[in-house]
Design a binder for these strands. Sequence first.
DNA 1: ATTCTATTGTTGTACACCACAACAGTTATT
DNA 2: AATAACTGTTGTGGTGTACAACAATAGAAT
Lengths: 150, 150
Amino acid sequence: MAQTDTINDTNIDFGMLAESVGYRLRRAQMNFFAKFTEICSDLGISPGLFSVLVIVEKNPGLTQTAVAQALGNDRSAMVAAVDKLESMKLIERRPAKNDRRSYALFMTKYGQEFFEMSSRKVSDYESTMMARLHSDQEKDQLIDMLKRLS
Amino acid sequence: MAQTDTINDTNIDFGMLAESVGYRLRRAQMNFFAKFTEICSDLGISPGLFSVLVIVEKNPGLTQTAVAQALGNDRSAMVAAVDKLESMKLIERRPAKNDRRSYALFMTKYGQEFFEMSSRKVSDYESTMMARLHSDQEKDQLIDMLKRLS
DNA sequence: ATTCTATTGTTGTACACCACAACAGTTATT
DNA sequence: AATAACTGTTGTGGTGTACAACAATAGAAT
């Protein structure tokens, strides 16, 4: 079989990917998410668990499936998530008043403090990333465009 | 234990997430990626395999690890990927000329045709998504901002 | 030359994530 | 009263991904 030279170029042509919005979106999101995951990890949770906290904090009394639907997850994924957050004393399951099948999810007092501290760190991170944009107006435009692509 | 009403609001408060660039980035990317995955699936490949094709097509003769580095993957992930693409007769491993450890990756003729057909479909999809933006200038600005966030 | 270190492809493993099916208990509908 | 629909839960399988280890090979050091 014919043997061939390999190329070890540090300057690789990404072809259509270079100017593809889908690829750029993915790259930016992965970069953003990597640091966010790290922050969450320092807090002892995962990004998914943090998103559950956000929903429960702003919408006390939600059902597990309601939270799952809000986040676009399967409700089966909620079990382990709520188990974990409950074992950390951050949220609690209370039996629903008029439906013995379901639980209502609530923040504990400690969970509230934990959440405020956590979301402060997350907001700080957001701010440092936003410094890469030129203006608040640009940021608003970015969010607007991203919403249109969702 | 006190029982409590559940809330089944369709109008859920996403709190800090609603105006968070990180969250919006994730949402847009996931939405974008879901359809992209579907297109790839129709072609019989995965998004990861498609990205390998893009790199190999534009950079013939690359080593497996070079492709892995370009894509930010571990080189161990490349084995199954190249196995699959080779079994589909899309690319081929040729023994490297001056290094008996490594292979040089090349597109087959059929792989070339397959890739052109595939990237056409992917580009079409990109175009339909870009229709949600107001202008080409807006698209350029979006890509520019996304690059800054990477 | 010989030894030591680095690299390549490869395999195995472990872990996170996610979708899906199934189930018992409960509620809603007919 | 019967049937369908929904809740939390468990299990399973697929997928992606990071990491360690290995033999073969290459490069560097002495």
